[in-house]
């Protein structure tokens, strides 16, 4: 499969990937390396993994990172309750019988490497996890094996397709960066965004779609605390078609009210008064 074919099949599942991203994804699959995707919030970093899983017909296993994420939540944990009950039930139970796979709770990382078929492993917002977790991850991503002290080493039955996302909460270590292929995703160009809107909301009128994309693109140039991402743009398009609006300049009050889909803080609401919105719409028409 060449990267153009991959790009085309991603488009079939509803994901528009630019050349750089499609190439990075293609190489990550071909070389069996993890792919690190960086970019601002709301540009579809997480969606990439979902689209990839759909293209490959693979299972998606997701690990959402947070500060304080540890091995027990990410790799494995013993099922203590069952172990306790088992000890009670079988008098004089040996240690060997207790620490078996039967009592092992698999968390996303261990689960991902013990599947029969290679799944897509999405490690979301890796920069939220702390450095300690990054170190665990390095070990797993390089060897694809997990060592459980009571039990032995579990080697991978398959090599998952790994996608990591980050948006700059914290700087990632060079070691992790070097182990991954890298793609930076930024807000899409107007043409790409129009294509996304066309794929995700096929019923939308071409004229309204152009207006929506143009206004959202213009809003991203405003001084906003949180710039509207692609997900917000799609929400807004859905809201507008739900309200029965066919032209943004028709009903300014309703359009202004529907901005709740795009602007997510009070400060941003104030930063886009009706006059500014009217001007943006005027420019779009």
């Amino acid at each position: 499969m060449s990267f153009r074919e991959l790009q085309a099949s991603l488009a079939q599942t509803g994901y528009v990937a630019d050349d750089a991203l499609a190439m990075a994804l293609h190489l990550a699959l071909a070389l069996g390396r993890p792919l690190l995707i960086e970019g601002p919030a709301g540009v579809g970093k997480t969606e990439i993994a979902k689209a990839l899983a759909a293209v490959k017909g693979a299972r998606l296993i997701r690990l959402q990172c947070y500060e304080g994420l540890d091995a027990a939540a990410a790799i494995y944990e013993w099922n203590y309750q069952r172990q306790l009950l088992a000890i009670r039930a079988a008098e004089g139970m040996g240690e060997d019988a207790l620490f078996t796979e039967k009592y092992l709770l698999k968390r996303p990382l261990l689960e991902a490497i013990t599947q029969a078929e290679a799944p897509v492993l999405l490690i979301d917002e890796i920069d939220r996890a702390d450095e300690e977790f990054e170190a665990y991850l390095l070990e797993i991503l390089s060897d694809f094996q997990v060592t459980v002290p009571e039990f032995g080493t579990i080697t991978a039955t398959c090599r998952p397709m790994v996608v990591l996302t980050a948006n700059g909460t914290r700087d990632l270590s060079d070691a992790l960066r070097r182990r991954c292929l890298y793609a930076h995703v930024s807000y899409p160009s107007p043409e790409a965004e129009l294509a996304i809107l066309g794929l995700r909301a096929p019923g939308l009128e071409a004229r309204l779609a152009r207006q929506i994309v143009s206004v959202v693109q213009a809003l991203r140039h405003e001084e906003l605390e949180k710039k509207p991402g692609i997900a917000e743009m799609l929400d807004w398009a859905a809201a507008l078609s739900g309200l029965g609006i066919n032209d943004l300049s028709d009903d300014p009050a309703a359009v202004q009210a529907s901005l709740v889909c795009l602007l997510k803080t009070a400060g941003d609401r104030d930063a886009v008064p009706p006059e500014l919105l009217a001007r943006l719409i005027g420019r779009a028409a």
Partner: peptide
């Protein structure tokens, strides 16, 4: 894994692998 003779593809491929 890419059409190595096409400069555009080679450029994309190198960027994915070499930029961190």
């Amino acid at each position: 894994h890419v059409a190595a003779l096409d400069p555009a593809e080679a450029r994309l491929a190198f960027r994915a692998v070499l930029a961190h």
